[in-house]
C-alpha cells in the first residue's frame, strides 16, 4: 500500500449503500461469487474492464444484457490474463501516444473461476505475473467446475462430494494452495477474501488500488448449487469458513504473509461441514469420526504455524 493513502473502510457502515453492478444476472440465487464481485465493483468503480475466462460468470453478460457499466471482454478458459495483457498494454500505448486522454484510462480486472485459476489458466496467470502486468485478478473459488455441474477441480477440498467424486469418501485429493503458488511469483499483492467478510474485502481492495503490478485475489465463493445447501446459508457458511479456519483471510506483500483476521477461538470444522450436502457422508448415516478428525487436524496444523 502506498504510504498516506487514507483507509475509508473502517467500519461496516462505510460500505457503499447503492450498487454499481446491474441486477438481473443469471447467477444462482445466493451466489457467493457474485456477492464478492458486486462488493468489489462498488469500490473499483465503473472505469474497469473485466476480462473473463470460461466459468459461471461468463453468463454475467449474455447479449444484449450486461450488468457492467464499464468494460467486459470474454476470452477463453485458458487465457484471460493474456486478454488483460492486451487491454492494459493497448491503453498504456494509447495514452502514451496521446490517442486516449488519461481520464479515459481503466483498471483491468481478470475474473475467473477456480477451474481456470487452479488449472487451465494457471500458465497464463503465471506469465502475467512474470511480466509484472499491472492488473487485478479475482478468482471466485467455488471449489469445482461449477458451470458444468460441479465436477471436482484442483480447488476441491478433501472429502467433498462432486458430480465426479460421488463415492462414499468424496474427493480423495486435497485443495491446491493457490495462494502460495501465486505468492511464489512475488507479485505486488496476493490476498484471500470472502463475500461474507465485506469489510476485510473492502480494505483489501482499497489497499491494492494504491499499488501497481499484479494484484491477486482468491475469494472463497460459497455455492448453494454446487455445495448443496439452502441459498440463505451462503453468508453463514462464509462466516463459518473463516471462524473454523477453513478459509484463512490473509495477504502477501513484499515477501511477507500476514493474516488479516485470526479467529481467536476457532470453531470446530464440523460446524462448517455439516451445513453442506457435499459433506453429508461425514455425518450420515453414521458419523465418520476419523474423516472429520483428519480434516480438523489439517486445519489445526495450518494454524499451528501461523504467528501473524
Amino acid at each position: 500500500m502506498i504510504e498516506g493513502t487514507p483507509v475509508h473502510f473502517h467500519r461496516m457502515k462505510d460500505m457503499p449503500s447503492s450498487h454499481l453492478l446491474g441486477t438481473g444476472t443469471p447467477m444462482c440465487a445466493g451466489c457467493g461469487g457474485l456477492e464478492t464481485l458486486h462488493n468489489m465493483y462498488d469500490i473499483l468503480g465503473e472505469k474497469t474492464v473485466f476480462v473473463n475466462a470460461a466459468g459461471c460468470m461468463t453468463l454475467l453478460s449474455v447479449y444484449p444484457f450486461t450488468p457492467f457499466r464499464g468494460g467486459w471482454l470474454y476470452t477463453s478458459m485458458a487465457s484471460a490474463p493474456a486478454g488483460a495483457q492486451g487491454v492494459r498494454d493497448a491503453m498504456d500505448i494509447m495514452i502514451k501516444k496521446k490517442k486516449l486522454p488519461e481520464d479515459e484510462n481503466m483498471e483491468v480486472v481478470v475474473v475467473t473461476g477456480d477451474g481456470s485459476a487452479y488449472g487451465m489458466g494457471m500458465s497464463a496467470t503465471s506469465g502475467a505475473m512474470d511480466r509484472n502486468l499491472n492488473f487485478i485478478y479475482l478468482c471466485y473459488d467455488n471449489e469445482g467446475y461449477g458451470n458444468t455441474g460441479q465436477q471436482y477441480s484442483a480447488a476441491t477440498p478433501h472429502a467433498a462430494i462432486t458430480s465426479t467424486s460421488k463415492g462414499s469418501h468424496g474427493y480423495p485429493g486435497f485443495k491446491k494452495d493457490l495462494f502460495s503458488i501465486w505468492a511464489a511469483h512475488h507479485p505486488a499483492y496476493v490476498a484471500t477474501i470472502i463475500g461474507a467478510e465485506p469489510l476485510d474485502l473492502a480494505k483489501k481492495i482499497e489497499k491494492l488500488q494504491g499499488m501497481t503490478g499484479p494484484r491477486m485475489l482468491i475469494s472463497l465463493a460459497p455455492c448453494p448449487t454446487g455445495w448443496d445447501y439452502d441459498p440463505q446459508l451462503s453468508v453463514e457458511i462464509g462466516h463459518l469458513a473463516v471462524q473454523t479456519g477453513v478459509w484463512p483471510l490473509k495477504e502477501y506483500i513484499n515477501g511477507k504473509v500476514t493474516h488479516t483476521k485470526i479467529p481467536k477461538q476457532r470453531k470446530p470444522v464440523e460446524e462448517y461441514l455439516k451445513l453442506q450436502g457435499r459433506f453429508k457422508h461425514l455425518f450420515y448415516p453414521q458419523r465418520d469420526e476419523q474423516g472429520i478428525a483428519e480434516i480438523q487436524a489439517r486445519i489445526d496444523a495450518y494454524w499451528d504455524n501461523v504467528t501473524e
Binding site: 444476472t25 440465487a29 453478460s61 447479449y63 444484457f65 457499466r69
Partner: peptide, 19 residues
C-alpha cells in the same frame, strides 16, 4: 459485432420471477 454499448442492461431481465 457482438458488443453491448450500454451499461447495466441486465436490469431489463426480471430475475424476480425466479423467486
Amino acid at each position: 459485432a457482438p458488443a453491448i454499448h450500454s451499461g447495466a442492461t441486465s436490469v431489463k431481465v426480471r430475475t424476480g420471477l425466479w423467486r
